[in-house]
């Protein structure tokens, strides 16, 4: 059963006085099955982040629809969109987006507190996740006291703790060194293996090569996709590189 369906998505930015139009997305169609790990690749400005924002109902499309678990995201009002987001989506951002007024622990609790959960339930949920992500001993620290990799793992914990239907990751390795990146990607693969659906936007081939499927976006359209099949990470890495080379040189579709 597909958990996410994107149909005929189009996003046009019009400058303030209607003078110039910029098409960020035109006719994007794809669907994601429950339990999938999908990477979306594309160069800067290809519309990846716009797509992610629309899926998260942070932005409205000009045309087309997004269904998340059967719910039409465009039909949601601002306030119910926020609640829906809180209950069904988890986010991991490139720049972590942790609040510096909270400890790591409180940052992770934030969505649950907003949902009105009791402290007992929250701490019960946090324990296994913190252990899995290896952040149990930094929970009492403040974001500025820990490393980038730890911050990103904390952000991942915040995304996972609501047990969302879908985790959206926007360039999660973008601000990390290679070791932290590897650790995080390994964690994502683990989380995915335990049944969590993940969509990750990235332009790192390394990151994409840990996914189960890779979508390529170019000039606002889904241009191509690769399934992992039985490939290892290394084999997928090569396929992605080849595809990107072709995309860059414009060789494939003519």
């Amino acid at each position: 059963m597909s958990i996410l369906e994107v149909k005929g998505l189009e996003k046009v930015y019009v400058s303030r006085f209607g003078g110039s139009r910029a098409e960020a997305l035109k006719n994007v169609n794809f669907s994601v099955e429950a339990g999938e790990y999908v990477a979306i690749m594309g160069e800067s400005g290809s519309g990846k982040t716009t797509l992610l924002n629309i899926i998260a109902a942070l932005d409205k499309p000009t045309q087309g629809e997004v269904f998340l678990d059967g719910q039409n995201m465009n039909a949601l009002k601002e306030s119910s969109a926020a609640t829906f987001r809180r209950n069904n989506l988890g986010f991991v951002f490139q720049e972590f987006n942790l609040l510096d007024t909270f400890t790591i622990e409180d940052n992770i609790y934030l969505p649950l507190v907003l949902a009105g959960k009791s402290f007992k339930e929250m701490s019960g949920r946090l324990k296994p996740i913190a252990a899995q992500l290896g952040i149990s001993d930094i929970l009492k620290k403040y974001p500025y006291e820990v490393s980038g990799g730890q911050k990103q793992r904390a952000a991942a914990a915040r995304a996972m703790i609501t047990m969302p239907k879908l985790i959206l990751a926007d360039e999660p390795t973008g601000a990390l060194d290679s070791r932290s990146s590897d650790e995080l990607l390994h964690l994502f693969a683990q989380i995915n293996a335990s049944g969590q659906t993940i969509i990750m936007v990235t332009h790192s081939v390394k990151a994409a090569s840990t996914a189960g499927r890779v979508l390529f976006i170019k000039d606002g359209e889904v241009f191509h996709q690769i399934y992992r099949g039985n490939d290892t990470d290394e084999q997928l890495f090569e396929k992605i590189s080849d595809t990107l080379t072709m995309l860059a040189t414009g060789g494939m579709r003519k």
């Binding site: 926020a82 809180r86 209950n87 951002f93 609040l99 007024t101 934030l110 907003l114």
Partner: peptide, 15 residues
């Protein structure tokens, strides 16, 4: 920035 983050995490503007 805090406002922006909180909105992304799922706080409504009213909250």
């Amino acid at each position: 920035r805090r406002f922006e983050i909180m909105q992304k995490v799922g706080m409504t503007e009213r909250e």
